[in-house]
């Protein structure tokens, strides 16, 4: 909150003149038919896109020259608010003259930019950025129809914030590189979550596959684990069943301990696991071969075994020689 946020209610004041003009007089609305396509010597493509939760639907018409893949004409129809109509109108215009592949690369951010009156003033207020997302999605739909491929092959992977087009990788990197701890920081660094806010956490305007709060929690946990491996390992090891603890210890013995002892002709067997006080886990071991009866095994070897187990599994492990 700040001086400019306290009065609120501003929505239309923040539409650019270009948005207003296109809402009042969209240039490219209407339908295209097979006979239009024939006249222009191209193929008719009709694509529908609609977000149930949003109540907006859009239909895009293209006539595409099949030799060059260039879109010769584009029109639309829309059930939506002013922003949706203006954005779709601008999007249709931006398609004309481009190849289908070029058009498929148009994003809602470019559409919004084209609707600005001034370079540095957004064309629509933050929450209405969402309304231009469909204009972008319908191009993907039209491309998949034209190419006769499944739309999922065209979708960019792992877009977390549709409004600002921020990917999962970008958010993860921002958290790691800048050591971000809050959603607000992520928004400040990446713009993700700055607009319709659906991607921040469940319960927003639109259901999402992945939410920023979850990404933040996961990456923070990973960062903590990397910084403090022992503490995290201890917690995880303590949660394992005894059988799994047994197997984990066996694998550390196999990998890190037995090969070292074998060099001196010695060996080690795991006998038992017993819980001690304050979360201590007593690992009962029995020496074999040359280790057996060796004077050094109580101090030197046991310390090596214990430290290796602590480093790999849990700092609460204590070695007990049987």
């Amino acid at each position: 909150m700040a001086k400019s946020d306290l009065i609120g209610g501003e929505l239309w004041e923040q539409y650019s003149q270009r948005v207003a003009d296109r809402m009042n007089n969209p240039r490219n609305f209407g339908e295209l038919t097979e006979s239009d396509a024939q006249k222009l010597g191209g193929r008719l493509v009709i694509a529908d896109e609609g977000a149930e939760s949003c109540g907006d639907t859009v239909r895009l018409f293209w006539i595409v020259d099949e030799k060059t893949n260039i879109i010769k004409k584009a029109t639309f129809k829309s059930f939506g608010c002013g922003t949706a109509i203006a954005a779709t109108d601008m999007m249709a215009e931006m398609c004309i003259g481009r190849t289908v592949d070029e058009a498929a690369k148009i994003t809602n951010l470019e559409v919004e930019h084209a609707l600005r009156d001034q370079e540095d003033v957004a064309a629509v207020p933050p929450q209405k950025m969402h309304c231009s997302v469909m204009a972008y999605e319908v191009i993907k739909r039209a491309t998949s129809i034209y190419r006769n491929v499944d739309i999922s092959t065209l979708a960019e992977t792992d877009i977390v914030c549709e409004c600002a087009r921020v990917s999962l990788q970008t958010i993860e990197d921002a958290i790691r590189i800048n050591d971000l701890k809050t959603v607000q920081e992520i928004t400040d660094y990446t713009k993700a979550g700055a607009f319709c806010k659906s991607c921040i956490q469940p319960g927003g305007h639109e259901k999402r596959d992945i939410y920023i709060v979850d990404i933040l929690a996961r990456v923070r946990a990973e960062i903590e684990r990397e910084r403090n491996p022992h503490r995290t390992l201890s917690a995880e090891f303590a949660k394992l069943s005894v059988i799994k603890q047994f197997k984990a210890i066996e694998s550390v013995l196999d990998e890190h301990i037995r090969p070292v002892l074998a060099r001196d002709g010695g060996g080690i067997e795991l006998e038992d696991i017993q819980p001690g006080e304050n979360g201590i886990i007593n690992v009962h071991i029995r020496y074999q071969g040359s280790c057996k009866g060796c004077a050094g095994n109580v101090a030197g070897t046991l310390s090596f075994v214990e430290q290796t187990l602590q480093k790999n599994l849990s700092e609460n492990i204590r070695g007990v020689v049987v």
């Binding site: 400019s4 004041e13 650019s16 948005v19």
Partner: peptide, 14 residues
């Protein structure tokens, strides 16, 4: 302050 920069939209086109 950019909030009011687009005010002309509502300058009563009617």
């Amino acid at each position: 302050m950019t909030v009011y920069s687009n005010c002309h939209v509502i300058t009563f086109n009617y």
